[in-house]
Design a protein around this nucleic acid. Structure first.
Lengths: 154, 154
DNA sequence: CACCCTAGCGCAAGACGTTGCAATAGCGCA
DNA sequence: TGCGCTATTGCAACGTCTTGCGCTAGGGTG
């Protein structure tokens, strides 16, 4: 279970966290396949949130033969490397956070459908509250909490 | 969209919230069918949390011809009446809270698989924190938050 | 009590995820 | 460079949940 990259590679331009993936995989006895390259290429231009379905679609644009199971399995591997993080949207659908620099929670407005990020300080307060209550070590990023945003409450 | 029952019925024994369902449905122009009766009978003995799958299975025990779509649709109706409340478990699976007397959030320990209820006060603190931050009116009960319980953290 | 309107039912198909298995192909090694 | 081990792939089938559609039957009405 590798740690997040600390960017060696003595490169020139600002190295993308994705640059060393192939080597990192191989270093762990895993393999660098065309399918994985395709998915990583797609993820490269998707810093943010994406649904699994959308990723599969984008991969298929580049490689007609892309199979869902392969994408899901590769995402699992990338998650082990800390490159993506999965969660569940309001409908329970799979959702991926690409390159989670800082883990954050999400809010979904059931009225307007917009999603919002929980500010780190607020998230920390929530985590602390649950730690104090039940001693739970909560991972807020795994789920999207539903509710109504300020505008829609009126 | 009816409100929660206020238990009239001037009955004898402590009336179950389920007792008036048939009448309540009819009063709204909806119907009381054998399929709905079956589901309500099952729910009656299930105060707590149940997955949709489990409900379907239990209904089928009583009526071999039970169809998933009917169960899901009936649950939607019952939710409108405030008799059940649905949410999504850690795997994104549908989960129902029967007779949600007080709305509460849930925690799931990814290590041991146990689930815990968030105490009302703690839940309120979380809701308040998000209200103060983004003005969000959060519905904590819709999702199960993941993490590690005190025991599993060690 | 028979009639009619329409809510609800069962079916079939589809979207999203997961899993077992046999065949394929990375890639480390000689 | 060629070989062999085994990580991965793609398929197929399954489980969960949703949706469209034509037929059925609940139940209010005359």
């Amino acid at each position: 279970m590798p740690q997040a990259a600390s960017n060696p590679a003595g490169g020139v331009a600002a190295a993308s966290p994705w640059d060393g993936v192939a080597e990192r995989l191989r270093a762990s006895g895993l393999r660098w396949t065309p399918q994985r390259r395709t998915l990583v290429d797609v993820l490269r231009e998707h810093e943010g949130h994406v649904t699994a379905t959308e990723l599969i679609a984008r991969c298929r644009e580049r490689d007609q033969t892309t199979t869902p199971s392969t994408v899901y399995r590769t995402l699992d591997v990338l998650e082990d490397f800390g490159l993506v993080r999965h969660g569940h949207g309001p409908g329970g659908r799979e959702e991926y956070h690409v390159l989670p620099d800082q883990v954050h929670g999400h809010l979904y407005c059931v009225a307007c459908g917009a999603t919002w990020e929980i500010r780190p300080e607020t998230g920390a307060a929530i985590v602390d509250a649950l730690a104090a209550d039940l001693g739970f070590d909560v991972d807020l990023s795994h789920v999207t909490i539903s509710g109504r945003c300020q505008t829609c409450r009126d």
